[in-house]
Structures are given as structure tokens and as C-alpha cells.
Design a protein around this nucleic acid. Sequence first.
DNA 1: TTGTCACTGAGACTCTGTCTCACTATTATG
DNA 2: CATAATAGTGAGACAGAGTCTCAGTGACAA
Lengths: 145, 145
Amino acid sequence: MSDIDLIEQRLALRGHRLTGSRRRVLEAIAGQPAHFTVDEVVHSSAGVGRATVFRTIRLLLDLNVVCRVLLDDGTLHYRVSVHGHHHHLVCRGCGRVEDFTTCDVKQLIGQLSSATDYQIEGHWLELYGRCSECASGAPLVPSDG
Amino acid sequence: MSDIDLIEQRLALRGHRLTGSRRRVLEAIAGQPAHFTVDEVVHSSAGVGRATVFRTIRLLLDLNVVCRVLLDDGTLHYRVSVHGHHHHLVCRGCGRVEDFTTCDVKQLIGQLSSATDYQIEGHWLELYGRCSECASGAPLVPSDG
DNA sequence: TTGTCACTGAGACTCTGTCTCACTATTATG
DNA sequence: CATAATAGTGAGACAGAGTCTCAGTGACAA
């Protein structure tokens, strides 16, 4: 099942209508790279109003099928992601994003919780770096240009 | 030495002038709680233009004497913080903020780096929870209306 | 096929932040 | 002290992200 099918299912489950505009937004989102801005979606879903794109993306956030990605420069992008709580590792070179859930944030939270006497309930973590391709001196652009 | 003195020193060191407007912004910032918005500073530094407040805070960010705090609801606040790279633990109850630098983010980064083959260069981490006072049922507001 | 109401598009609006531009104040220098 | 150079300033226009309003439309159940 594709992400779009899953999303449509979740919409239906929650009693939301599957309208033409929503379908166009979903298709536009599916055609985006790792992460995207609302504006990019507006431009690639012709005929759909800006407000509707925002509304749809907000709805998808609520349904946990889209998540926010905080980029290095402080701008907020979006990303299709049907898993639950997770974090991002964003490549500064090509923009590729890895989702990860496995890593040991809990350990860190345990440490801090006992050190500060806080009851820790939530967290936000983004990591930035270079994927192996970008780190190894951009083998994608060998010698021309 | 107070934070203000330190900040004034750093301004001078970098060849920035210490003008009346800057002084008023610094005083306003010093009078803010754990974290604040630019708008709050604008309101409490009467007579200083909005643009100047923004410019001053941007300057203070550059000088690493103020940092951004990403709140739980996605809004960006600011905070005086003269230490270098650090993270925040924000109390959802009273808004109190703990800075921490000691915790073992490096270990986590090491794990991920080998798992994903990324060269990890930076990260952003915020934690949310309740401080001991807020967690223990708000002893600050006992019974009066 | 019809009624209901969730959804829509347009555009005004808000909020955060930046830019421009003429003006002002600080600082170094004669 | 006078003055020049220029960093800094305030007002307000502008920009980008997102929300709200409101009349109209279209999805879907009956």
C-alpha cells in the first residue's frame, strides 16, 4: 500500500471527506523530495487555494502522516512520515533525510531526569550532517562543468 | 559581573557601540523571565523602535549571549545565555528553563553516525517536562481563589 | 435527488522578522 | 571644540508563514 492510500484510509477513518482538492494536495506531496515547504506544495497543486493547502497539511499533521522538519537554518519544512514519534538526520549537502526511532534518547532522558529532578515528557531532536556520498567529496559531479 | 556587564564587554570587544537604545534593550532583556519573545522586549523597552530591538537581539545571537528556545508549541522564544553550545529543558508548567551542556549527546551521535554512515556535524535538542514543583501538584497556589 | 454541512477559494489579516532610507549620535581626529 | 566618518536609529514598507472569514460548492447519506 502506498503512502497516499494509507493517508486516504486514515482520512476516511476519521470521517474526513476525500475531495478533489485534497487528492491534488496528496499527489503534490507524494511528488516532493525528502522535505518540502507549504509553498512548494501550493505551486505543484495547481488550482488548489493556498488556504486549503495549509489546511490540508495541518490536517495531515494531526493525522500523524506528515511531520515537521526543522532545518539547520531555522526554517520549518514538512515531510511525509507515517511512523509515529521519530527524529531526523538531515544531510546538509543533498537535503536527504533519515528518520530514526531506534536511537537511545531514553538513556539521555534518564540521566537528565535524575540530574535535574524534572519529569521529562517530551523532546525535539534534529541532527545535521553529511551523508556518505556528500561527505566523500561529491562523487556525483566528477569533473565536468 | 552581571550578564549585562558581560554583554556590554562583548559588544565593545567586537567594536560595537553601546548606545542608549542598546542599553534599554539590554535592561529590558535582563528583566524578562526565563525566555521571552521579541515582542515582549519591544513592549518593555519604551521608545526603542521595533527594528532596533530585532537588530539588537540578532546581534546578541551573533555574540552568543542570547539563544533561541524552541517551545513545545513550535514557537520560537529567546533567552539570555552566555555559555556556548547547550540545550534546554523547559518546564511546561511554569516556563522555567534549565540549560544543560553536560549530558551525553555525543554518545547518541556516535551510535547514529555508525548506524547511518552520516558524518554528523550539528544538532538541535530541546526537552520538555515539569520541574519538581510543578510536577508535585503546584504547591505555589494552595487554596485561595 | 435533495439536503446538510464539511470543505473550498479568495483575500484580508496576523505574527515574526528583514530591509530601506533619511536622520542622529558616537567616536576619532584635527 | 569643530568636524567628518560612519555605526546605529525609527518609521514604516515589505516578505514569508500561517490563520480566519465568508459566501459559495461539492461530497455523501438518506
